[in-house]
């Protein structure tokens, strides 16, 4: 596909132009932090953000998503994708979407997710500012971001837009863009390579080594009790994670008491009742009763269980869990380095 250049002063005009025909979701400021939200004007766009509170996964898999509607006669579904341009996604979040894309397609295709995914054009953007807890420079370096349609890189004087798919190509109208020179493309490449060095190397291990050692640590109860010691079972690490996709399903009624909806909500495997089953007499059988077993399960999934399937860790290094953790114990850098340093 093509490579284009747009002047810094033209960028907002381009975004506002796109906004006339389609919904645009991009990073905007929310108090001191950033979130992905629908742009009301291009001026809200903050491509200089470090990390958003929630990953862009929420566009396809919202925290609360109606999956069925019912009345006394029938049950119908609610898949209703909205054509969208998702603008300004950092490469680590593109990798997160690659993983959820795979997991939502695997075995049973979940079109409640995939329909919106297919209706969306993703424009990735270069990282201009590194979040304090980010460690994407240290994890899954061999996994390349795939699922974006174009890549926007800030270079001096403007931006280079490299299109990766026909969907991305359609965004680059030549009234505002011109073809990029080879120097400009090389410059963009240098910018994206240089930013990797700004995120210091914190875990000097190969992800396969990590997967093996983490899996072998399963039976080391003392280790996991220690690692999970202050866990409040709040599930904050799950909620902010780009690769967590567990959910709960609940029904609710409309005021007429004959119609209603089935809705899925994000769920968190760290919470106490996540694996509990109600047995006879209302007793619960909780298959992960202890908080350390839930904490361990999350790391087993991210580092080991999903590793072979995804060809790398189910972690993008975004650092959101580390920043969100109430007890400041969820940081994968701390957990993985501890495990790697322990003789099992």
């Amino acid at each position: 596909m093509g490579a284009y250049f747009i002047g810094a002063h033209e960028l907002l005009g381009w975004v506002d132009g796109l906004r006339e025909s389609t919904r645009i979701i991009g990073p905007v400021a929310k108090r001191q932090r950033f979130v992905f939200a629908e742009l009301e004007s291009a001026a809200q766009l903050r491509l200089d953000y470090d990390v958003t509170i929630l990953p862009p996964k929420k566009v396809f898999f919202p925290p609360k998503q109606q999956i069925l509607a019912f009345d006394s006669e029938r049950v119908s579904d609610c898949i209703d994708p909205v054509p969208t341009v998702l603008l300004g996604v950092h490469f680590y979040d593109v990798k997160g979407l690659d993983m959820t894309d795979f997991l939502m397609r695997e075995r049973y295709e979940d079109w409640n997710y995939l329909a919106q995914r297919e209706a969306t054009t993703i424009v990735a953007s270069s990282v201009q500012s590194v979040a304090p807890r980010a460690f994407w420079g240290s994890i899954g370096a061999h996994v390349r971001p795939q699922g974006h349609d174009a890549m926007l890189t800030k270079v001096s004087e403007g931006y280079v837009l490299e299109t990766r798919t026909p969907k991305g190509e359609r965004l680059a109208g030549l009234e505002r863009f011109r073809h990029a020179t080879d120097d400009e493309v090389a410059g963009a490449e240098r910018v994206n390579a240089a930013v990797m060095d700004q995120c210091s190397q914190l875990m000097p291990y190969d992800s396969k080594e990590i997967a093996t050692k983490v899996r072998e640590s399963f039976g080391n109860e003392e280790l996991w009790d220690d690692l999970a010691m202050d866990c409040f079972s709040c599930g904050s690490c799950n909620i902010v994670c780009p690769t967590c996709y567990c959910f709960d399903v609940r029904d609710s009624w409309n005021v007429d008491q004959t119609s209603g909806q089935r809705t899925r909500y994000w769920d968190a495997c760290l919470t106490r009742e996540f694996a509990a089953v109600t047995m006879a007499g209302g007793q619960k059988e909780n298959f992960r009763e202890h908080h350390a077993s839930r904490f361990r399960h999350r790391f087993m999934r991210k580092a080991a269980y999903l590793h072979d399937k995804l060809g790398g860790p189910a972690c993008t290094g975004c650092g959101r869990c580390a920043a969100a953790c109430t007890a400041n114990i969820a940081d994968p850098v701390r957990v993985i380095n501890t495990i790697m340093g322990v003789t099992l």
């Binding site: 997991l103 939502m104 695997e106 075995r107 049973y108 979940d110 996709y245 567990c246 959910f247 709960d248 399903v249 899925r264 769920d267 495997c269 996540f274 694996a275 509990a276 089953v277 059988e285 298959f287 399960h297 087993m300 999934r301 080991a304 269980y305 999903l306």
Partner: peptide, 23 residues
């Protein structure tokens, strides 16, 4: 027996290590 909520290997509740009880 597990909490097989979605039945299609997505929701995560019935996981036994890396396996889904439901699929």
């Amino acid at each position: 027996e597990r909490r097989m909520k979605c039945g299609v290997g997505k929701c995560g509740h019935c996981q036994i290590n890396d396996k889904y009880c439901c699929i």
